[in-house]
């Protein structure tokens, strides 16, 4: 564990403006994520969990505040610069898996590598994809299409895709929301193993059982950080 924060959010706000009203999704959030952290973010519906995860993943821009990844301010980057950071530093796991229907399992997992610049060779891509699929025990289904797999299998492919680019952090959005409890538990076990192997992980969940599995638990309420505990400190 290093003392240097891998990810740092300082006084982040996010306001959604429509013609009729302004919605303050996040109000002055401060957050630090350290290397190897297993972090869960929970809170009631509308508290800003998804907005926070979108900002963490550079899927959205904050209205104000600073956001640093490995010490570099990323809050003012252009769309393409943010795409590079997402591609190299962040791995996503979504509730709805978000696999591309038209692509095979192999191609779905290879997708982040194909966006790398300079381009990686086919053999490098193949090695990395196979390695990633082996981590989730899905290397035997490379040529299948997503719709030929079960929900649990699809989420494992999504995890392989998130891992394939060796990201600095995995951002996980309700990973069990579309799964039954058996498959949900299997996925959570897999994520736990990844964190034990040193992967930094930040997960949004409303399930207290899964939130409790994290080393750090954050609670959001009305766009504000209500509680922040470091597992080690608690111990």
């Amino acid at each position: 564990m290093t003392t240097e924060a891998k990810i740092q959010m300082i006084d982040i706000t996010k306001v959604f403006v429509t013609e009729e009203m302004e919605t303050h999704a996040l109000r002055g959030v401060d957050l630090e994520i350290y290397d190897g952290d297993y972090l869960s973010i929970s809170g009631p519906s509308g508290c800003g969990k998804s907005s926070l995860l979108s900002l963490l993943g550079l899927l959205d821009s904050p209205t104000s505040g600073r956001y640093l990844i490995e010490g570099k301010d990323v809050s003012k980057l252009s769309i393409n610069e943010r795409a590079v950071v997402r591609n190299q530093k962040i791995g996503f796991i979504f509730q709805a898996f978000n696999l591309i229907d038209e692509l095979s399992v192999f191609d779905n997992v290879a997708l982040p590598l194909r966006y790398r610049e300079p381009a990686l060779s086919a053999s490098v891509i193949k090695d990395k994809v196979m390695a990633s699929l082996e981590k989730v025990q899905m290397s035997h289904r490379t040529s299948h299409k997503p719709n030929q797999l079960s929900g649990g299998q699809q989420q494992r492919i999504a995890i392989a895709r998130a891992l394939v680019g060796d990201p600095a952090i995995l951002l996980v959005d309700e990973p069990t929301g579309n799964l039954d409890s058996k498959n949900g538990d299997a996925v959570m076990d897999m994520l736990a193993k990844l964190t034990q192997a040193g992967t930094t992980l930040c997960m949004v969940t409303h399930d207290p059982r899964y939130a409790d599995m994290a080393g750090r638990r954050l609670h959001l309420l009305d766009g504000r950080m209500a509680e922040s505990l470091r597992f080690q400190e608690a111990v």
Binding site: G57, L59, I79, N80, A83, V84, R86, N87, Q88, I90, F92, N98, I100, L111, P112, Y115, R116, E117, R161, G165
Partner: peptide, 9 residues
Amino acid sequence: IHMALGAKT
């Protein structure tokens, strides 16, 4: 999804 995975414009 492509954008989330790092595809540039």
